[in-house]
């Protein structure tokens, strides 16, 4: 713990007054930190670009593509932001958590900085000038089959609505490599329905291996790049606001897809 305190002094200083309404706990983050560090530096060797574009303070929304079975891109973003030298910031990861029945898991995620998605929650965070991250593909993004890797599912524009209402800058974040980390062979929808889960993906590890191993992933190389914020004009009219949110979500989706295409081309050119 003392090691953590000295290593992350700036981060602690910055996040001391941040929002803890849902029970964020720095001690839990400190306990998990070595594992995240191992994943970030050694397992996936994440290359993070464009973090300098984030403002030092004030509200902002990061919108990213999800993939790879578990919300690992969210954790990698969390780690990248807390360990940044120039601009350490706490990020609130907004996600649908209602389907998680297990209370221990639910509270563990909340302690790490997850926030259940709701318009009121997001607006409160923006009013306090917090940094919020959102993965609008939702659960279908996590259960994306390997055939459709690096192709985005449709973004849920409703999730961007609170940000557009408050006029918060939206930063798209493209993550390359997360879809190959856990190749999802198929999504067994009927089993998922039977078990009451939103999806039941089958991976080379997942239902087969004993518990901690079935959550495993392959050590692929990850590239994450933060793209310059979307500019839009906030308006008062409800219809125009919704129109604007729809347009922004479509544009963010396109920006991320185009960035993924660019990164992929770079990689292919590099290797062959």
């Amino acid at each position: 713990m003392s090691q953590f305190l000295s290593n992350y002094r700036d981060f602690l200083k910055q996040s001391v007054k941040s929002d803890r309404y849902h029970g964020f706990d720095m001690r839990v983050l400190a306990r998990v930190e070595p594992f995240l560090s191992f994943l970030f530096h050694d397992w996936w060797r994440v290359e993070m670009n464009g973090l300098e574009k984030l403002p030092r303070d004030g509200a902002a929304l990061i919108v990213g593509n999800s993939g790879s079975f578990l919300p690992w891109p969210a954790f990698m973003l969390l780690y990248a932001l807390m360990s940044s030298r120039q601009n350490p910031r706490r990020v609130h990861l907004v996600a649908d958590l209602d389907w998680i029945k297990d209370e221990r898991l639910h509270s563990f995620l909340l302690e790490l900085g997850f926030v259940p998605f709701s318009s009121a929650n997001m607006k409160r965070l923006f009013a306090k000038g917090e940094l919020v991250a959102l993965f609008p593909e939702g659960v279908p993004g996590l259960a994306k089959p390997y055939m459709g890797r690096d192709r985005l599912n449709v973004f849920d524009w409703v999730k961007l609505l609170p940000a557009v209402e408050e006029g918060v800058p939206i930063f798209p974040l493209a993550t390359l490599g997360c879809d190959e980390a856990v190749p999802i062979l198929t999504n067994m929808e009927r089993t998922a329905k039977f078990l009451g889960l939103p999806a039941f993906p089958v991976t080379p590890f997942f239902p087969w291996l004993p518990f901690p191993l079935n959550l495993g992933s392959l050590p692929t190389k990850w590239h994450m790049s933060l793209i310059k914020p979307l500019t839009y004009e906030a308006s008062q009219d409800r219809d125009e606001l919704e129109e604007c949110a729809m347009r922004q979500s479509q544009f963010a989706e396109g920006e991320i897809q185009a960035e993924l295409n660019r990164l992929l081309r770079q990689q292919w050119r590099h290797h062959g």
Binding site: R151, L152, N153, Q250, F251, E253, G254, Q257, N261
Partner: peptide
């Protein structure tokens, strides 16, 4: 131009899926 490019790419992704 980007908006139209993204619309086409989005549609291709949907059809592929």
């Amino acid at each position: 131009a980007r908006e139209i490019q993204y619309e086409i790419q989005d549609d291709l992704n949907k059809m592929l899926r």
